[in-house]
Amino acid sequence: MHICVKLLDEIIAGAIKEDVGTGDLTTMITVPEGAVTEGYIYAKEKGIIAGTWVAERVFYFLSSEIKFTYQKKDGDRVNRGDVIAVVAGPAGPILTGERVALNIIQRLSGIATQTAAITDKLKGFGSIVVDTRKTTPGLRVLEKYAVTVGGGRNHRFGLYDGILIKDNHIKVAGGIANAVAMARAKAPHTLKVEVEVETREGVLEALEAGADIIMLDNMDFEAVSEAVRLINRRAQVEVSGGVTEDTVEGYARAGADIISIGALTNSVKALDISLDVKEIKIGS
């Protein structure tokens, strides 16, 4: 997954502005001019690492003299105490960038870890796990990247790159058939049309309307199994709504092609990661 440097720098600049503002008072007061240091970014619990290169970019953004040496790469599994990277250089910028860098790598690693735990449960099944638009404002591209590090895939990135007709669209359009017909008439032929349904009747309406993907929202295993039988490969089947690590395998067994999980990004626990400065040297 490619993330352009310009967009990444905009995210980093915003995060640094939020945290540093007009200056890091504590560092300016307590760190001698010319001080250099070496520190270790390390895991305090086991998980999957993601966002190391973003953390490197944070430090580079503050000082091009900081050397960032990788000990682990994105996608690596770590245990408590494992060193992820070594940072060395001017002490001031390292301490100023510490929290922003850690916030990003902790959150992305948490997303990758949760995604991996879920995708591991689906080995041997034909289902894929995808994320949703339930992301942190301004961080969507990074959070969706972290999902791919954990072995998941991305749903649409925004409202601009996919058609997903949900319950409110259906109400305003006057029904599933009308909504799908309008989508077919106005949308590029290269885009698939996905429809969210909540009932057996909705499944049949979406099929009749010619939906490419039918999203089964908040259905139990039995209802999903019946819907899969009714659809009979005439459309892809997506399951969504309250799916957890404990229930995802059941939906795969029921025949879902795609399982979308908002909790991958909207309520994930950050991985516990720290930066420990080992030594301070005063430059000549």
Rank of each mutant, 00 (worst) to 15 (best):
M1A: 15
M1T: 14
H2M: 15
C4A: 13
V5P: 01
K6E: 13
K6I: 10
L7T: 13
E10N: 13
I11H: 01
I12W: 10
V20E: 12
G23P: 05
I29R: 08
T30I: 13
E33W: 06
A35G: 04
E38P: 03
G39R: 01
Y42G: 09
A43F: 05
E45L: 11
E45M: 09
G47R: 00
I48Q: 04
V54M: 11
A55C: 14
R57L: 08
V58E: 00
F59V: 09
S64T: 10
E65R: 07
Y70K: 12
Q71A: 06
K73A: 08
D76M: 11
D76S: 12
A85K: 01
A85H: 02
V86T: 12
V87P: 06
V87M: 13
A88G: 00
G92N: 05
P93S: 10
L102G: 09
R107N: 08
G110T: 08
G110K: 07
I111S: 07
I111V: 12
I111D: 06
Q114P: 00
Q114S: 13
T115W: 03
A117H: 12
A117F: 12
A117M: 13
A117P: 01
T119E: 05
F125V: 07
G126K: 15
V130K: 06
T132C: 07
R133E: 11
T135Q: 09
L139P: 00
L139N: 03
R140A: 14
L142Y: 03
L142K: 05
E143D: 04
A146I: 07
T148Q: 06
R153F: 13
N154V: 10
L159K: 15
Y160I: 09
Y160H: 09
Y160R: 08
D161F: 02
D161R: 02
G162E: 00
D167G: 11
A173T: 03
G175W: 00
I176Q: 04
I176L: 03
N178H: 03
N178M: 01
V180M: 08
A181E: 12
M182V: 10
M182I: 12
M182A: 13
A183V: 02
R184Y: 00
A185Q: 14
A187E: 03
K192S: 14
K192P: 08
E194C: 06
E196F: 06
E196L: 08
E198W: 02
R200F: 02
G202N: 02
L204Y: 02
E205G: 04
D212M: 10
M215I: 12
M219F: 11
D220P: 05
D220R: 02
S225C: 10
S225M: 09
S225H: 09
V228N: 15
R229K: 14
Q236W: 08
E238Y: 05
E238T: 10
S240G: 06
G242N: 07
T244S: 11
T244F: 02
E245V: 15
V248E: 02
E249H: 02
A252F: 02
R253N: 14
G255Y: 14
S260A: 15
V268W: 06
D272P: 04
D276E: 12
E279F: 00
I280Q: 03
I282M: 12
G283N: 11
G283T: 11
